[in-house]
Design a protein around this nucleic acid. Structure first.
Length: 856
RNA sequence: GCCCCUGUGGUGGAAUUGGUAGACGCGCUCGACUCAAAAUCGAGUACCGCAAGGUGUGUCGGUUCGAGUCCGACCGGGGGCACCA
């Protein structure tokens, strides 16, 4: 008997899998395929516990499906472009490339140590020219299909770092890195036309049955489809130059047109600019709005501000009534038409604005039960249901009917049409950065934007760039951007913007199907493998990454690269890893590695090992470096072995929920691995006749029931519940076996157990498999199957209720009739007591479940 | 403000469709082994009660023979979106 030694066993099994090429995958149309993918990691340098959980889950699914007879694709790669590499380059005066590939090498080793059933021959990094070169190819194809375009747009510009910032990188109006006040700047940027697929991306959500509802809802909200009316308001008097048709507004409430009391324009609206040309005060007002902060806090607290342009428009339905045209800070240029009509009585923002500037408030929707003569709004706009009144031809209609009627009337007057508007905007993909995929075009003064010819791809990044000054190193590079126009041969300029790294991660799953293809996608391979059957990753990607990937898949489909439109048939969003936090007397965070927690008089007390001081125990929070509540996977692997770590992150909580890391928890998993090994290690070499057939049958039944339960649990992503069944089976084999040790029944139960634990603790499972005398690998063995007859009990306990209260229980043999069960219940002492002196009005009998006497 | 999720012992959580609430793990208590400790093994562990019995899944109400599960209102926790017309 030897204690299980993961340090010895784990490398041994890794070597066996590698030698047997167990996880190499080939397309095989004869076999059903299953594509399991976990969101690929950013090569930050080290793996963390979150990775361990993510990849342990994917590996469980991959190994389980492989055993179930599927041809499984389970690849791994690196989302390797991005800012952290540039920051490291800046700090260490090195090139991002070296830093990134060093990190990949290190993290690959750590992931391989985890024993993941990955086909490493398919590995790539998005910063490999072989990958991003293919990305450039399809990018140009999208350009040809008008799915990529350039336009001027307003961006958050950091004047110190000389770069565009995403909205979430602007904090209190300042750049998150430089602290400089962010400017609004117009810049010509590259965009992807995601809005062309807005409707399709929304519709497609309903086909994604194996996605969490939460994610589908979030995407639907993000796409934000609304139906309404685009209509033009004619000017009263002379129209400003270029606005002869009037000003176009978008509304979802055409039913409230009779309540309109003003028009409001966004500060950047062309009409606002036109009006400002004649009006210096208005020009000042617009300029002041552009200086305002852009942070969420600023927007939340900003007071409504407006400026009357002096222009007036005519109401389409009310002869002789005119409305003033204002410029207002709460109107957004990039939603709808950048102009609205204000109906203060039924929109809170309009009401706030109207009260401040003393504009009329006209109620036109009457809530049920309100009095038409006296109904008025005060500080709160009325946005609920009701009937339209004071509204001419709309009077008496419900809101929805009134919307239709108003749209019909505006359309017949030739002033507008019903319209669908999306919140979704086109995707700005330009980044003024070095460490990203170069946008493969050349700007020529004569020929304009010229795609880089196919035979000159990939456009690779120069390696002699410097990061000692802010701004885009590609822009500063002495020679890189100076090229000849491929069209006319004159001096031209290479595009120095690189692509948003979200582009890189929007098609990698397709590239994995044949990572060496000479075209972006090997269609035959993609047709076989796609869509991904099970995608696993964090909820934080619910919108951006998952929406971009769905869009790019449609775009690639549109250009003929792919047959599928949806990349991920099944999505699972796993929870995060959390840990208790600890602080010393000075309020400094303390790492868990230096802490021992004990229970003293029922109170948990944390003590710092290095100094002995007592620490305060804080909340359980997401593992993060800043709170120092992380644990290093490598340390855990060294202490408990990889299998214990994998087991714990899967066993303690449902996979979609956060799991709290604890030393005592992983020790429980560690104990389990030893208990399992002891069962196998103590098995006699030769079979011994069974001493007790009844006990042996019980053992067989327990094993087959466990196979059934674990199979269902793995299938349904209830890993924690399935693992609990494994614990039960192990306990059963350990405790009920005295008379069957060495028997075939026990050997059979252990063989089933080895198969069941293989997806969770694969190294241990192989050790056990070998100990059973099996020649091959459990990783290549078919999934344990159960005999339904054995997985079923032949007797069960049925509770007996009187008036719904449990009063007794009966041991019932399978196949007993209702009459037999009822008679047995009536003979039961405890039941009899409660039926004494009352009459039975009704008997509720649910086979295998319950017997309930209803008495009166 | 709008939308979504969630609330079960000391604790993480079980309870496929309404049918024995608390599986399994952690912690704790007691015991075995040990000079002792650790490790390991065994027993116990929702609450009240000596017991019979009673009470219990955030609160209040409803549907039902029967509710953790379904419905309504409220309270707490978490997440997403947000001057989106």
């Amino acid at each position: 008997m030897a204690r299980y030694n993961p340090k010895e066993a784990e490398p041994r099994q890794l070597a066996r899998w590698a030698a047997a090429n167990t996880f190499l995958t080939k397309a095989d149309p004869q076999k059903p395929k299953y594509y399991v993918l976990e969101m690929f990691p950013y090569p930050s340098g080290r793996i963390h516990m979150g990775h361990v959980r993510n990849y342990a889950m994917g590996d469980l699914v991959a190994r389980f499906k492989r055993a179930r007879g599927f041809n499984v694709l389970h690849p791994m790669g690196w989302d390797a472009f991005g800012m952290p590499a540039e920051n490291a380059a800046m700090e260490r005066k090195i090139h991002p490339k070296g830093w990134t590939y060093d990190n990949i090498k290190n993290m690959r080793g750590e992931l391989q140590r985890l024993g993941l059933s990955i086909d490493w021959t398919r590995e790539f990094a998005t910063c490999d020219p072989a990958y991003y070169g293919q990305q450039q190819k399809w990018f140009l194809n999208l350009l040809k299909h008008d799915l990529v375009y350039r336009r001027e747009s307003q961006v958050n510009w950091d004047p110190v770092d000389m770069t565009v910032l995403a909205n979430e990188q602007v904090i209190d109006g300042r750049g998150w890195r430089s602290g400089a006040v962010v400017e609004k700047k117009k810049l010509t940027q590259w965009f992807m036309r995601i809005t062309r697929f807005a409707d399709d991306l929304l519709e497609g959500l309903s086909t994604l049955e194996r996605w969490p509802d939460k994610v589908r809802t979030m995407q639907a909200n993000w796409i934000g489809k609304s139906r309404g009316l685009k209509m033009r308001w004619r000017f009263d008097g002379a129209a400003p130059e270029g606005f002869a048709d009037g000003v176009e507004v978008y509304t979802t409430r055409p039913d409230t047109l009779y309540g309109a009391s003003f028009i409001a324009l966004a500060a950047d609206h062309p009409l606002a600019h036109a009006a400002a040309e004649q009006n210096p005060a208005l020009a000042d007002f617009i300029a002041s709005l552009n200086r305002g902060g852009v942070s969420q806090a600023d927007i939340d607290t900003a007071e409504k501000q407006g400026f009357d342009t002096g222009l007036r428009v005519a109401h389409p339905f009310i002869d002789g009534q005119t409305l003033p045209v204002w410029v207002a800070n709460f109107v957004l240029m990039d939603y709808g038409t950048g102009a609205i009509f204000g109906c203060p009585a039924h929109d809170q923002r309009d009401l706030d604005f109207a009260r401040k500037y003393d504009l009329p408030v006209r109620e036109v929707v009457l809530p049920q039960g309100a009095d038409a003569d006296s109904f008025t709004v005060g500080k709160d706009a009325y946005t609920g249901p009701g009937r339209i009144f004071r509204s001419g031809f709309l009077d008496g209609l419900e809101i929805e009917a009134a919307k239709d009627a108003a749209i019909d009337r505006i359309e017949s007057m030739g002033l507008g049409e019903g319209a669908t508007v999306f919140r979704l905007r086109d995707w700005g993909v330009s980044r003024q950065r070095d460490w990203g995929c170069p946008i493969p075009v050349i700007h020529c003064e004569t020929c304009g934007v010229v795609p880089v010819p196919d035979d000159q791809l990939p456009v690779t990044l120069p390696e002699d760039v410097t990061f000692d000054v802010p701004g885009n190193p590609l822009e500063r590079h002495p020679t890189w951007k100076h090229v000849k126009c491929p069209h006319c041969g004159k001096d031209a300029r290479r595009e120095t913007d690189t692509l948003d790294t979200f582009v890189d991660s929007s098609w990698y799953f397709a590239r994995f199907t044949d990572p060496t293809a000479t075209e972006p996608i090997n269609k035959q391979a993609a047709d076989y493998w796609l869509p991904v059957d099970q995608y696993i990753g964090g909820i934080e990607h619910a919108v951006l990454h998952l929406l971009y990937a769905r869009f790019i898949t449609r775009a690639l489909n549109h250009c003929g690269y792919l047959d599928v439109k949806e990349p991920f048939a099944g999505l699972f969003t796993q929870g995060m890893l959390t840990h208790e936090t600890y602080k010393d007397a000075k309020g400094q965070w303390v790492e868990p590695g230096d802490i021992e927690v004990e229970t003293v008089d029922g109170q948990r007390v944390a003590r710092r090992l290095s100094t002995g001081e007592t620490l305060s125990i804080g909340d359980v929070e997401k593992m993060s470096k800043s709170k120092k509540n992380t644990v290093a996977p490598e340390d855990i692997f060294d202490t408990y072995g990889v299998d214990s770590a994998r087991l714990f992150v899967l066993s303690d909580s449902p996979p979609e929920r956060d799991v709290q890391w604890s030393t005592s928890g992983v020790e429980g998993s560690w104990r389990f691995t030893h208990r399992v090994w002891d069962l196998f290690d103590s098995l006699p070499e030769a079979d011994v006749p069974c001493a007790n057939e009844a006990v042996a049958l019980d053992l067989r039944k327990a094993a087959h029931k466990a196979v059934k339960a674990v199979t269902e649990g793995f299938e349904g992503f209830r890993f924690n519940a399935a693992i609990a069944k494994l614990y039960e089976l192990v306990t059963t084999i350990r405790t009920n076996d005295i008379s069957v040790v060495g028997s075939q029944a026990r050997r059979d139960a252990l063989e089933l157990l080895a198969g069941l634990i293989a997806p969770v603790t694969p190294h241990l499972a192989e050790e056990c498999w070998t100990r059973l005398g099996k020649d091959g690998l459990v990783a290549e063995a078919p999934w344990p199957h159960f005999d339904p007859a054995l997985a079923q009990d032949d007797a069960y306990i049925m509770p007996v209720q009187v008036n719904g209260k449990r009063r007794g229980e009966l041991l019932i043999r399978v196949g007993a009739t209702e009459d037999e069960i009822r008679d047995a219940a009536l003979a039961d002492e405890a039941v009899k007591r409660h039926l004494d002196g009352v009459s039975i009005r009704k008997i509720v009998f649910v086979p295998n479940r319950i017997l309930n006497f209803v008495v009166g």
